[in-house]
Design a protein around this nucleic acid. Sequence first.
DNA 1: ATTCTCACCTGCGGGC
DNA 2: TGCCCGCAGGTGAGAA
Length: 271
Amino acid sequence: MPELPEVEVTRRSFADAIAGAKILAVRVGKPLRWPFGGDPDELVGQIVTTVRRRGKYLLLDTDQGLLLLHLGMSGSLRFATTLPPAGAHDHFELVTTLGILRLNDPRRFGAAVYVHGEQDPVAKKLLGHLGMEPLSDEFVFQTFCAGLKASRSSIKQVLLNGRLVVGVGNIYASEALFLAGILPTTTAASISTTRARQLYEAVQQVLNAAVQSGGSTLRNFSSADGSAGHFQQQTKVYGREAAPCHTCATLVCMVRQGQRSSYYCPCCQQP
DNA sequence: ATTCTCACCTGCGGGC
DNA sequence: TGCCCGCAGGTGAGAA
C-alpha cells in the first residue's frame, strides 16, 4: 500500500511518541522480504532515538544501531501502549517502555532489517541507489530534468523505479502524470524542459496533498495511531478506468506497463 | 550499462 | 456455494 505519503504519515504518527523508548523485547513472526540481519535480541536494551524516512523506508535510529522498516505492498504499523494479541499477519514487534510497535503485513513483502549504521553493506544495498527526496531541498529540477533526458524508458517507469526520485509509487505516478498532462507511456527523454518542469511541480504537489489527506487507504492501511487516509477519494485517474475525467468528461483509460496498471485521460494527457 | 521480466506472498472480487 | 483466475500500494535479482 505504502508509497511516500503513507510512509510519511505513518512516521509522523509515532515518531515523537516512541522517541526515548527503551526496547524491552523483540518478537519476530514469519520471514519477511529480507533477513533480519542478526540476533533480534541484540536490540534489547537499546534506546530508540529518532524515526526518519528515506524513500519508502522508515529508519529507526537507536543509540547503538539502525532498524530499517519497509511496509512492502500490504504492511502497516501500529504503535500503542496496549494492543490486541498478535494475529497471523503480525510479523515483527518491538516491546518498549513507551509502547508496542507492531508490523502487520499479510503479503510479507515488507521488511525489518537491523544494521549498525547507514554505512553497513546491507544498508547500502537497500538505500545506496535511492534517488532524490521529492519533498526536500535536495529535489533539484536540473538534476530531475537531466535524469529524464538520459533515460529511454517510459516516464511512468522512471518515476516508479526510484533511481531519480524516490517515494512515487503506482498511485502517485499516475496522479502526477495527470496533473502534468503527460501520457504515462511517453519516453522520458522526449519530454521538453517546460513539461519536465510541470511534472517536477506535479510530483511535489500530489505527494504533499496526499500527506495532508493522511495518505491513501485502499485496503486496510492505517497510520501507527490507527487512523485511515482518504486521498483515494480524490484521485483524478488512479482506479477510475471508464469513469469520466473530472476535467473534460472523457473516459479514463488504463494501460499495462511492466505488469502495473497506469491510468490516464487520453484527452488531458499528451505524449 | 541500461532495461525488462520475474519472483516473493496472501487475500479478495469477479466470472463461471 | 465453491473454484479458478487475475489483480493488488514494492523492488531486488537475474536475464537480455
